[in-house]
């Protein structure tokens, strides 16, 4: 197994096919990254929402406690 290209420039140009190959890999990398990030963001925003609501619920409980 050996490196198939003469130089780094040759590797990037891929004898003229470089733009096609690198564009494909770049698009794929972005798409795969999106698949990982989107459930993480969904989870994060849900957690923030639950936290906010529980703080509101606590405050309401406190206020009710003091008014009585």
């Amino acid at each position: 197994m050996k490196f198939q290209f003469e130089s780094a420039a040759d590797f990037i140009s891929m004898s003229g096919h470089g733009p096609y190959v690198w564009a494909s890999y770049a698009i794929t990398a972005v798409c795969l990254a999106y698949l990982v990030v989107s459930p993480l963001l969904k989870r994060r925003s849900l957690m923030a929402e639950i936290k906010r609501q529980s703080r509101i619920a606590e405050r309401n409980a406190e206020l009710q406690g003091t008014s009585r």
């Binding site: 197994m1 050996k2 490196f3 198939q4 290209f5 590797f11 891929m14 004898s15 003229g16 096919h17 470089g18 096609y20 190959v21 890999y25």
Partner: peptide
Amino acid sequence: LAFAPEDFKQGNS
């Protein structure tokens, strides 16, 4: 990308 041989018909694409 770097170590598999080039295709004799399609080249690097």
